[in-house]
Amino acid sequence: MNKLSTADWISLYRIIAVPFLLLALVLMQENWFKYLLLLSLFSDFIDGPVARRLKQTSGLGSSLDSVGDLLTQVLMVAGLFRFRPEVLQEYVVWFLVLLGLYLLQVLCALVKYRKLTSFHTYLSKMAFLLLGMFVLALFFYRFASWLFYPAMVVGMLSLAEEIMLVLRLPVPKEDVKGMLWVWKSGDKRK
């Protein structure tokens, strides 16, 4: 295995945190969970800028970031199920639409590329940030509709964009800015 860069270690934190987040869920330790989740979201916020600043961008780093993002998202939802089930029940349609789009994106990627994508579009970064802010606000304060609705809408738009990217790009690419940049660059379907 190649030597891990500083940015890779920051991304790897989210993967290492998974068993501890799971333990907090099982033991009903909401405080542990919310602080570990806060650290995971912070690591996602800084790993990309650190990689670019230190010129440590790599395929491995992109993959670690994608896996860390996926696991963090799954655990955020698991935390909602465990600690705030009333929110999921009240807004079940929103969560089901988001989940459906996510599963469709995964299915498209697996069928076409035989692997998950690591597009890291601007829209997906914004969606993850908004979702993280919403979940943290929910755990640290209370339900914030002013964060919930933008998080859901941007999340759905992000997943729709990623589905379009899978359908458009003949091979998977890492760190794609978004569909607009793909169109401008002249990438064609093949």
Rank of each mutant, 00 (worst) to 15 (best):
F20R: 00
F20V: 00
F140C: 05
P49A: 10
L116T: 10
V171E: 13
N31I: 14
L103W: 10
L22K: 09
T6V: 15
T117W: 00
V166G: 12
G79S: 09
V93R: 11
E86Q: 10
L41T: 08
F148W: 05
F140W: 04
R142N: 07
G100R: 02
S158D: 03
K125C: 06
L80G: 04
V67N: 14
F119C: 05
K115F: 02
V67T: 15
E161I: 01
P19A: 07
A78P: 11
F134Q: 02
G79Q: 12
N31W: 10
E162C: 01
M156G: 10
V50I: 11
F95S: 00
L129I: 03
G100D: 11
I16M: 09
L41N: 01
E162W: 01
Q73Y: 15
L12P: 08
K3W: 11
I15H: 12
S5E: 09
G48H: 10
W181K: 15
I46P: 09
L103A: 12
G186W: 12
L75W: 03
K112A: 00
V67G: 14
F20A: 03
L165R: 03
I163N: 06
R82W: 00
A24M: 12
L75F: 04
V67A: 13
D65S: 03
L12H: 12
M164D: 05
K112V: 03
G178K: 01
V154H: 10
K115Y: 07
K184V: 01
K115A: 00
A127I: 01
T121Q: 05
T6S: 14
S185R: 15
R14V: 07
T117M: 03
Q29S: 09
L104G: 02
L130I: 06
I46F: 14
P19M: 09
L75D: 00
F20G: 01
L130F: 09
P150E: 02
L36V: 04
R142A: 08
A144L: 11
G178N: 08
L4C: 14
I16D: 05
R189Y: 07
W94S: 08
G155D: 00
I163K: 13
Q105A: 10
R84C: 00
Q29K: 13
L99G: 05
L27T: 15
Y35M: 04
S58W: 06
D47K: 04
L4E: 13
M133D: 11
A137S: 15
L165Q: 05
L60W: 09
R14E: 02
R52F: 02
R189N: 15
H120T: 03
T117Q: 01
M1Y: 10
D44Y: 09
R53S: 13
Y149G: 11
